[in-house]
Write a protein that binds this DNA or RNA. Sequence first.
RNA 1: GACCCGUUGGUCAAGUUGGUUAAGACACCAGCCUUUCACGCUGGUAACGUGGGUUCAAAUCCCGCACGGGUCACCA
Length: 502
Amino acid sequence: MDKKVRVRYAPSPTGFLHIGNAQSALFNYLFARHFNGTMVLRIEDTDIARNVPHGEESQMENLHWLGVDWDEGPDKPNPKYAPYHQTERNKEGIYHKYVQKLIDEGKAYYDYTTEEELQKMREEQKAKGETPRYGGHWYNASQEEIDAAKAKGIKPSVRLHLPKDHTLEWDDWALGHISFNSDNLGGDFVIEKNNGMPTYNFAVVIDDYLMDITDCLRGADHIANTPKQIAVYEALGVDHPHFCHISLIFNPATGKKLSKRDKNTLQFISQYHRHGYLKEAIFNFIAFLGWSPVGEKEIYSKEELIKAYDPNRMSNSPAYFDQHKLDWMNAEYIKKMSVDELADRIMTLVHENDSEEANKLNDLKMSDDDLRALLKKVIHIHQRDVYKLIEIMDYAWFYATILDQDLSYDDFANFDKDETLAVLNGIKDAVKDLSDDTTPDAYNDLIKKVGKDVNVKGQKLYFPLNIAFTGKSSAPQINEIMAVYPVATTVKLLDKAIASLN
RNA sequence: GACCCGUUGGUCAAGUUGGUUAAGACACCAGCCUUUCACGCUGGUAACGUGGGUUCAAAUCCCGCACGGGUCACCA
C-alpha cells in the first residue's frame, strides 16, 4: 500500500441498518483498521423521495452499537473533504462542475427524451426480446431539434457518452479480474437527472475521487455498476480505486438474496439487539459472511478480526445466512461473558423496554437492584444453556412469578408416593426458618441431609424437588433454583406439591 | 432475453500457484461426566452438479451442458 488507505461506507438513508448494510460497513471498517487507514461515512441521499425520517440517525446508532465506528463523517467532518451529505455537496455545485467539464469536452450531452418516451422505448424493446438500451439519439441531435425541445420547455438530463466496443475492466479483491464491454452497458447513461441531482453512478465516482478513496468495498449487487463508474473515471481521466465486491447474503430457505420480505430471518441490526444477541457475536458472525481467516478458529474478537483481516481472502461465492450458526456463536459469547457484564446488558434491554420479555420484567415493578440481583442468580443457572439474552429474561420472569405459574405435577406418578412425601415434608421442615439469602451451597447441604434423614437418594430425591420447584422432572441444579426463591415462596411451592399428592 | 458471477457432506464452510488421509464448525448419533437437563470431553456417519478435454496427476486449468444467483432506471 503506497498511498494512505481511505475507505468509506456510503449508505443511503432510505431505511434502517440492514444486515447487508452492516456487512458492508463492517468490511470497510476491518479494512481501514487493518491497514491503519481512515474510515469515512458518507450519506448518499440524492434520492430525496425515498429518504426516510431518522434513517440516517438509526444507521449511525446501530453502527455504533455494533462497534463499527468511523473517522470522518457528517458528525466528524474533515474540512478537506466535507461536507459528507451528497445533497449538500450538490448544493455546492461539486457534481455539476464535473458534468459541465464532460459536456464541454464532448464526453457528455443533454438528453431531452421525456420519461414517457423512455418508458415506451423500453417496453418496445422488451416486447421484441431485446435488452433495454438507450440508443444515443440526442448525442447526434441537430441544433433545430434541440431548440425545438427547449421551446417545449423540456428539462434535459445529462448522459455520458460511452466509447464503442471498449473494454472496461478491473482487478477485484474478491472476484479477480473482471471485464465488461462498453456496448453491453445499456447505452449512454444518465449522470445528471433533470432535477439537477447527480445519479448514483456519477456522484459515487466524484465523491470517491475527491475524498481520495483508495479502496471501494461494497455489495456484489454493484458489480454491474462498476463498469459504468469506470467509464466515468476514464472520461474524467483519473484513476479508479481498487474495488472489492462483497458476497451477497443469501437466505438458505429461499436460495436468494436476503430480502426484506423474508419474514423468517431477522433483517435489521436493531432487531438482533432487541432479541438479546450480543454485539460481539453479531460482529464475529457477519465478519464470516463473505470472508474467512486462515485456520480453524471461529470465535474472534473485534481486535483479532482486525489483525487477521486480509482482503485477498474475500469470498466470491454467496454467503448463506445460517441462523443456527449465529445462535451457536451467540451462545458461545454468552458462556464466556461474566455474570456482571451479562446482568448489565440485560438491564439495558429491560430499560429500553423494546421486547415482550423486557416488558414482562418491567411489569414486575421490581427495583433495579432487586431485579439485577435476581438476574445474576438466573444468569448463573442458565448462562450455559441459552442462545439469547431474552431467554434468560424469560427464565427470570418465570421464577419471579412461579406462584402464578401452572405447574404440572404429573411426573410425581413415576415415584413412590410415600418417599416423595417424606422428601418434600423433610425439605419443608428444613427450609421454613431459613433466611431469603441462603446460598446454593447451603441448599445443597440441606438437600443431602434431608435425603439421608428420610433415606432417599439419587433421582428419587432430586426429581420430586425438580417437579415441585419447576413443574418438570428435568431441571438445572435445583439448589440454585431454590436460592432464587424467597423462602416463603419455596414453602408455598412445597405445600402445593404436597397437596397435589393427597 | 443480454451481461456478469457462482455450484464441496443434512446445513455453513476451508481448499490463493494442479499432487491433501478433501480442514473446521453447526446439526445428528454413540460413549464419558452428571440426580436429571444442559455444559464439557472423546469418538462416529456424511461431500467435490454433469459431460468432455489438457496432464503422469484435476475439487483445483479449458470447453459444453444443467442448476442457482446478481444486474439490466432520470433507485442507491
